[in-house]
């Protein structure tokens, strides 16, 4: 799951921290070579580094959050599935369009012994991988595969866990011809009908209808540094400012961070990430995910399927901010 053999990917705001850490290593090496005891100084410097990390990650701007959410080393759907479950078997195909969409993966597994259906958008690790995965942007076939797997789970009483990580549904001629709008719309309606528990978690980037197409659940979770927005900030900037380079302003205005969305009562829970982001300690991030999923699942499993469907309906029914004038 870790990719320590590869060169780390640095975000701009991480630079002072990484420089400090490099210097600590340098001093330690020098001290060892010359047989000088500097452990106290090193201890101080390390404390400073930890403090700096905390400062940086506790005051990320929305644009920086977006960078963390899109970090190429950030754990992906398959990373999390493999880290939290046993007996995972990936299933393929939507049985209609005659192809398998690699941008959405799904399959059966055991979570703490219980059979579950897990699915989500899959981004690639590098350029080659990303081209195969289409940067996590699904075609209609991807959404239909997801629906086929969810129907399957519903028949066999398996809870559904979805993982959201996509900039958007793919905009292309082929996607339009095969009915991108219809595929997403169908999922939105049918997910309200399913009787098994559904928990949706935004693990990285939740972008527009492409995210919502697997995002109707009893519980909606977000990782601390993930984002969820109505349109990718670049697209929003192009629409509203008519200038895609205004993306940082758009990220600010859209209120796309987990904290903001919790305040707006759209999401139910924020899953804390290890300091430095999920990409810094993927195993720790997977552990907190598993714990949160299990807690919520046990609550949902105590309800009847009618109660869960009502809960899901009311959850979305109550989203919206407007004023009702007295007549």
């Amino acid at each position: 799951m870790t990719t320590s053999d590869r060169r780390p990917v640095l975000l701009d705001f991480e630079k002072p921290l990484v420089e400090l850490e490099a210097r600590i290593t340098q001093i330690r090496e020098l001290a060892e070579e010359n047989d000088v005891d500097v452990s106290e100084q090193i201890w101080k410097l390390e404390e400073r580094a930890a403090q700096l990390r905390q400062e940086i990650f506790h005051s990320l701007t929305p644009a920086q959050q977006l960078q963390v959410a899109r970090h190429p080393r950030r754990p992906s759907t398959l990373d999390y599935i493999q880290a939290i479950s046993d007996d995972w078997l990936e299933l393929h195909g939507d049985r209609t369009t005659g192809m398998d969409d690699p941008a959405i993966v799904g399959g059966v597994a055991r979570l703490a012994g219980r059979p579950v259906m897990m699915l989500g958008q899959q981004k690639g690790r590098d350029t080659k991988d990303n081209i195969t995965r289409n940067f996590g942007m699904a075609h209609p076939g991807g959404y239909r595969k997801a629906m086929r797997l969810m129907e399957h789970a519903n028949r066999f009483g398996m809870p559904i866990l979805t993982f959201i990580d996509t900039p958007a549904a793919y905009p292309g001629v082929e996607a339009e011809r095969l009915g991108q709008g219809e595929a997403i719309a169908y999922n939105l309606r049918e997910m309200f009908r399913l009787e098994v528990p559904i928990i949706c978690t935004v693990i990285g980037e939740g972008g527009s209808g492409g995210a919502l197409g697997i995002g109707v659940g009893d519980r909606l979770m977000m990782f601390e540094h993930s984002v969820y927005c109505v349109a990718p900030p670049e697209a929003c900037a192009a629409i509203i400012w008519r200038d895609a380079s205004k993306a940082p302003q758009a990220a600010e205005a859209l209120k796309l961070t987990a904290t903001d969305l919790k305040h707006l009562d759209i999401i139910d829970q924020v899953i804390p990430e290890p300091l430095g982001g999920a990409h810094a300690h993927p195993v720790k991030a997977a552990e907190s995910l598993k714990q949160v999923l299990l807690e919520n699942l046990s609550e949902l499993l105590q309800m009847t399927h009618q109660q869960r469907r009502e809960l899901r309906y009311q959850k979305f029914r109550n989203i919206g901010v407007f004023m009702e004038m007295s007549a």
Binding site: R189, L212, R317
Partner: peptide
């Protein structure tokens, strides 16, 4: 489409209306 100025609240209206349509259909 969705109204950018209301952010994710707008996106969620898609699900809200679809949920109501599911009951109408049922």
């Amino acid at each position: 489409g969705a109204r950018m100025q209301e952010g994710l609240l707008s996106l969620m209206q898609m699900a809200k209306i679809s949920g109501a349509l599911e009951r109408h259909r049922e």
